[in-house]
Simulated scan of single mutants.
Amino acid sequence: AASRLLEEAAGDRLRTAEPPDPLLAAIVAGVSRGTGVAGIAAAVGLGERQLHRRSLAAFGYGPKTLGRVLRLNRALDLARASVPFAEVAATAGYADQAHLAREVRALTGVPLGRLLRGPGGE
């Protein structure tokens, strides 16, 4: 019964949702390539402030933070594949393992090892 209600709510939301912003893929691609905010804004035909507002609306944060989150996701994928943390840091674009550790704690609030173990500490 509860799953049915959830399914109906999701269906209702999907039917009434605004279409996705067509620029989002280009914004994510630019951020993923490491393009600066000014370069991304110019490439998608927006001003920097409008780019920031669109990013906030779509992702909940601006393009610089989006870049940090995407880089962290790349790092976590590597770490989950048992790549040593120092190699994870270098491959994902961090200055060193300490930088990776600081960024993980800043973005997630927990140390990298604990984040990888999950909430139950497995």
Rank of each mutant, 00 (worst) to 15 (best):
A2R: 14
E7R: 14
E8W: 08
R15E: 15
R15G: 14
T16A: 15
A17K: 10
A17L: 10
D21P: 00
P22K: 01
L24N: 05
L24P: 01
L24E: 11
A25K: 08
A26Y: 00
I27S: 01
V28W: 07
A29K: 11
V31M: 02
S32V: 08
T35E: 12
G36S: 11
V37G: 08
A43E: 04
G47C: 00
E48I: 05
L51G: 01
R53G: 06
S55G: 12
L56K: 00
F59P: 03
G60Q: 04
V69L: 06
L70H: 13
R71Q: 14
L72H: 09
R74A: 15
L76Y: 01
D77F: 07
L78I: 02
A79T: 04
A81I: 00
V83W: 08
P84F: 07
F85W: 14
A86I: 12
A92Y: 03
A95G: 13
A95K: 15
D96E: 11
L100W: 11
E103K: 14
E103D: 15
V104G: 10
A106M: 10
T108F: 03
G109E: 03
V110Q: 10
G113R: 12
L115I: 06
R117Y: 03
G118A: 03
P119D: 14
G120L: 15
G120K: 13
E122P: 08
E122T: 08
